[in-house]
Deep mutational scan, measured.
Amino acid sequence: MATGGRRGAAAAPLLVAVAALLLGAAGHLYPGEVCPGMDIRNNLTRLHELENCSVIEGHLQILLMFKTRPEDFRDLSFPKLIMITDYLLLFRVYGLESLKDLFPNLTVIRGSRLFFNYALVIFEMVHLKELGLYNLMNITRGSVRIEKNNELCYLATIDWSRILDSVEDNYIVLNKDDNEECGDICPGTAKGKTNCPATVINGQFVERCWTHSHCQKVCPTICKSHGCTAEGLCCHSECLGNCSQPDDPTKCVACRNFYLDGRCVETCPPPYYHFQDWRCVNFSFCQDLHHKCKNSRRQGCHQYVIHNNKCIPECPSGYTMNSSNLLCTPCLGPCPKVCHLLEGEKTIDSVTSAQELRGCTVINGSLIINIRGGNNLAAELEANLGLIEEISGYLKIRRSYALVSLSFFRKLRLIRGETLEIGNYSFYALDNQNLRQLWDWSKHNLTITQGKLFFHYNPKLCLSEIHKMEEVSGTKGRQERNDIALKTNGDQASCENELLKFSYIRTSFDKI
């Protein structure tokens, strides 16, 4: 039985969820670079991206490699990797027998973001014989899940209580170790020597080791999670996991709180800001991140802002960003909400898709409305799209047979046209069989910064309504002859009103 693990408890099935942008060198404390989270699957090609990484700022997932063999891993080693800020997950990587050479110096898994409450997941690794993470000293947050690894031993010899604050939620089941077939031998045991430290858990006094050649490092209890030197002297209180010299914040392997210019500090002093819960960055760093993602459509890219001495992905609820200094300031009234469309555009074809934009005031991208039916549609669209004030790209209304009016965009005031449909149009209306009105132009103002209007096959939309939009939106004169079809717009509506004058002759039985 794995020490510190839980057996036999019912657990939810383990679901495996399925960018080499360097964020800056980590400095003297770390020998390499800070790398983003990685999802490495199918083959070993991307694994080489770990070569210079000291910190993975995010998670590391290595999974679904069915053609790899043990010899493929023999020359692979990433000794610079010290810390993973989120979680480490391995799933069905064939041929991998140990992690001792792959990650010989991995010391800390912070667990800032977890995989279903777990910071370390080893699942269905069919050839893994031992973990071998002999320098792993601290899992700051989260638990361990090690399950269905039929060859995995050296679990009962690990004292997880020396690595985690609590072992109650560890789930370590259905491994070879369960069948008591392992016969784990710690260093020196074969020669009758006791080389590794022994600890007591559940009444068992057991030597602690990761492999037959690597003991588990056990520091004096007084050192807590700070770690200790090879001689057993406690590291500085700002260290986490390990250090090369005692009581020196510049000799830590990793930091308990924050890293700044080669030393570990309790908090980031001005003019620095907390970033990702582990390091200090200056304003320029946060500003660069903001600008890199301002026009990016890459998933996970955030326009970072500053709030409460932190550089964070977005302002919290009730705050909006001051564009001059990136500071989050309290909103006066309802907060603006910028919604970034991942692929640059979004099609609204149902109430469900409209709900995804609920509360958005600025759309960074283009909207395509293609709704053919739905219950209580006008009210639903207004509830979900009615706060949109600005669209950076274009607005396209296409084959939306259920629409009679666009009044559900009740606050839309600006279409920038930074991206144009077919390279020309910022407003595009095609084949809307029941569209009769755009907006009530006596109450609604709309500016279209650039781009043209396109109207074709809107049989109940009168040309007068379209011409009014040209005047109000500032697009009059931009359109070419064929942009607004004269014969297919309003051709099934009563669009022309003329005053009919009647004269009559009164007659009676005795007068003409």
Rank of each mutant, 00 (worst) to 15 (best):
Y273K: 05
L120A: 09
T229Q: 07
N202M: 12
N117Y: 04
R297L: 06
L90P: 00
C335Q: 04
N105M: 04
N170I: 08
T211H: 09
Q245H: 12
D248H: 02
P79L: 03
C280M: 00
Q245E: 14
L136S: 01
N42W: 08
H307A: 03
I146D: 01
A119Y: 00
L106P: 01
S77D: 02
T329A: 07
F103P: 00
S296V: 03
F283N: 07
L96F: 02
E231P: 10
D101N: 06
G142Q: 01
R69M: 07
H212Q: 14
K148P: 01
L81G: 00
F205W: 15
T329M: 11
Q276L: 08
E130Y: 12
C196K: 02
P270I: 12
T140E: 08
V281I: 12
I62T: 01
R145S: 10
C182P: 14
P313K: 10
E168I: 05
D159M: 04
I82E: 14
V305S: 11
L99E: 00
L136H: 01
T194W: 10
H274N: 15
S317F: 15
C153W: 02
T250Q: 02
N150C: 03
S166L: 08
P270S: 02
G183Y: 07
R74Q: 04
Q61N: 05
A190F: 08
S54K: 04
K217S: 10
F275W: 07
Y171V: 08
T140A: 11
E124Y: 12
P270E: 02
P79K: 04
C264L: 00
N179F: 06
N179P: 08
L60F: 02
V108H: 12
I201E: 11
P270Y: 07
T320Q: 08
L63Y: 09
T199V: 09
S317I: 09
K67W: 14
A156Y: 15
C264K: 01
T85M: 06
Q216G: 05
S98Q: 02
L102K: 00
F73V: 05
D247P: 01
C311K: 03
R279E: 02
G132R: 01
R110G: 09
R69F: 09
F258K: 02
G37C: 02
P70E: 05
T85I: 04
S98F: 02
F285V: 04
E238K: 03
F78W: 02
L128V: 03
A190G: 05
F91L: 05
D75L: 09
V253S: 15
E97S: 09
L81Y: 00
S317D: 05
F285E: 01
K193T: 10
C215L: 08
M83H: 07
N179Y: 02
Q61F: 07
S98K: 03
L152I: 08
V173L: 15
N242D: 08
I172G: 13
E49C: 15
N117C: 04
M38G: 03
P269T: 02
C219S: 04
K67R: 12
N105K: 07
L102Y: 01
N325P: 04
F205S: 14
Y87A: 01
I139C: 02
I109L: 07
H274A: 09
H291Y: 14
N242F: 08
P104S: 01
G192I: 02
C252P: 00
D177L: 10
S98N: 08
D75C: 09
G232L: 08
G262D: 01
C234Y: 15
K193A: 03
V265P: 00
C186E: 05
G227V: 09
G183I: 05
M65T: 04
C239I: 00
P271T: 05
Q216C: 11
C215N: 14
R113T: 07
N117S: 07
G227E: 03
N242G: 08
G318W: 08
N42T: 12
M38Y: 07
N175W: 13
C335Y: 04
Y87G: 01
G183D: 14
H212W: 08
R110T: 04
T45L: 12
P70F: 07
E207K: 07
L174R: 13
M65S: 13
C223H: 03
